[in-house]
Design a protein around this nucleic acid. Structure first.
Length: 475
RNA sequence: UCCUCCUUAGCUCAGUUGGUUAGAGCAUCUGACUGUUAAUCAGAGGGUCGUUGGUUCAAGUCCAACAGGGGGAGCCA
């Protein structure tokens, strides 16, 4: 048995081959478009309907699984270069055309989301998931070739001090009748771990420990947020890439993030040409039905090259506020949230203006006010800002959030006190500052947001195999 | 969680100022045709108009609540 991908790449003309796959369409009682998932391309299998039994012909329906053997020849028709002249054909699995939901026609993304177990058999989702796989490989390739070690952060965590959002509780207690303390609170001492535990919202704190021993490390694993977020860019379960580097300051951190993103995008541009081309045309089709004003100026692969071929714009928070203050939409009071002054977080509309209108480029914002950022970010000499950085991308907003970490024990303790974080919970995290502390930095990159940007998919639920969102954990 | 829009055949959608028998394309079935490319041609079957309640002589159409979904916002990756 051979994959269609390898047959098309190295065609062995006039030889007998065997392939297995699923029927996309069956035309004229003669032409089977067979797809095996190895590539976007179907291979046309031509059957002689006068020789083939009527019973078999009837069973060649959209969605059926087939094993086909025959001679690989140059196609006699237009539209494809190769085809198989079928000698034997076996229906491995029937597909009742009356009931099979995926038809050879356009389906809405919403409908396919409800058929997540079958949607992979469409061109769009096949392309997206192959690109996703290639991106994941490129991530590992980049880090291993740049001296990073892959380490596995725990999925179950005992600290809820990370402050990255609502968490999912992990417990083996009977939810209907939990043991109570004399005070009437749930007694987690009797729970499996003897304390309250949750699914991780970030592997960063653990990654810091590993960076302070192995030098450069990264995690790439599932992350869980129990936020009631209903947007096209949020999931309750998503995959996050978190590198952490000893002896890196914020500038080195930003350099790394930029080079990393550019290199993984270059990898898919080089290795997923057909899938990207398909996704690009899909977007162009979609845009035809939109009003002119909403159409995107750049094609998908142009957008990717735009990111890989030029440096990201780096701007401090303070500079960004000045730009926004003087911007036309702010002066004309077009912003829903006018720029009040220094110190508040930027709204989506502000980030979008900077990225899509002002700079027309990916933007790295850094040196944010300390009050709006997490406790572990390193305080600058001005005492007001921290060495934080966010990378903003057109269309999807924040794709990276990172910082240089506070390495000074006293400063960190003071910050934790201010933000009411229990030192006892994070004793081990403080130990890292007690024993051989050093400047170090890292960031988190939302993998699905990267896949979204790369494939041009509008909704994050369409770039992860089985999306988990509020009120939805089907499959 | 808030704002807003949507829910009509298996799928995508049309359905007029409320009016009597709810339509189209694709898919399916029957037949014809056979080098097709979302094949073509002829015919057929297929509907609790999201659910519940209300207004009205009359509701797919108007109102309310609920459910599901989309888009935007917040939270963030």
């Amino acid at each position: 048995m051979t994959s269609i991908d390898s047959l098309l790449k190295e065609p062995r003309l006039s030889q007998d081959v065997t392939i297995c796959g699923w029927v996309r369409t069956f035309r004229s009682n003669r032409f089977i478009a067979l797809n095996d998932g190895s590539t976007l391309n179907n291979l046309q299998c031509v059957v002689d309907f006068e020789q083939m039994g009527e019973d078999t012909l009837r069973r060649i329906t959209t969605g059926a699984a087939l094993r086909v053997s025959g001679t690989l020849v140059e196609s006699q028709g237009r539209g494809q270069s190769l085809e198989i002249q079928v000698k034997t054909l076996e229906v491995l699995g029937d597909s009742d055309p009356e009931k099979y939901p995926i038809q050879p026609k356009k389906h809405s993304m919403e409908f396919l989301r409800e058929q997540a177990h079958l949607r992979i058999r469409t061109n769009t989702f096949g392309a997206v998931m192959r690109v996703r796989s290639a991106l994941a490989f490129a991530v590992h390739r980049y880090f291993t070739s740049h001296g990073f070690y892959y380490f596995h952060a725990p999925i179950i965590t005992g600290s809820d001090a990370e402050g990255a959002g609502e968490m999912f509780r992990v417990s083996t207690l009977d939810p209907r009748n939990p043991p109570l303390t004399p005070e009437g609170i749930i007694d987690y001492k009797q729970d499996f771990f003897g304390k309250e535990t949750n699914l991780t919202v970030s592997g960063q704190l653990e990654a810091e420990a590993y960076a302070m021993a192995l030098g450069k490390v990264y995690t790439f694993g599932p992350t869980f947020r129990a936020e009631n977020s209903n947007t096209s860019r949020h999931l309750a379960e998503f995959w996050m890439i978190e590198p952490e580097m000893a002896f890196y300051d914020l500038d080195a951190n930003m350099d790394l993030a930029e080079e990393f993103i550019q290199e993984v995008l270059r990898y898919v541009l080089d290795h997923c040409r057909e899938d990207l081309e398909f996704l690009e045309n899909r977007l162009l089709d979609e845009e035809k039905s939109k009003p002119q004003a909403e159409r995107s100026a750049m094609k998908l692969t142009d957008k990717l090259r735009f990111v890989t071929d030029q440096p990201f714009r780096r701007v401090t928070y303070t500079e960004a506020i000045d730009i926004l203050k003087q911007s036309a939409p702010n002066r004309k009071k077009k912003f829903q949230y006018p720029i009040e002054g220094w110190g508040t977080d930027l709204q989506s509309e502000h980030e979008r203006y900077l990225v899509e209108k002002h700079f027309e480029s990916p933007v790295i914002l850094f040196n944010y006010p300390a009050e709006i950022k997490a406790f572990y970010m390193r305080l600058n000499e001005d005492g007001k800002t921290v060495r934080a950085m966010d990378i903003l991308f057109p269309g999807i907003g924040e794709i990276v959030g990172g910082s240089q970490r506070e390495e000074r024990l006293e400063v960190l303790q003071q910050k934790m006190q201010q933000m009411d974080i229990d030192e006892k919970e994070l004793w081990w995290y403080l130990d890292l500052r007690r024993f051989g502390t050093a400047v170090h930095s890292g960031f988190g990159l939302g993998f699905e947001r990267l896949v979204q940007f790369t494939t041009g998919m509008g909704n994050i639920r369409d770039v992860i195999p089985f999306p988990r969102t509020p009120q939805n954990a089907e499959f």
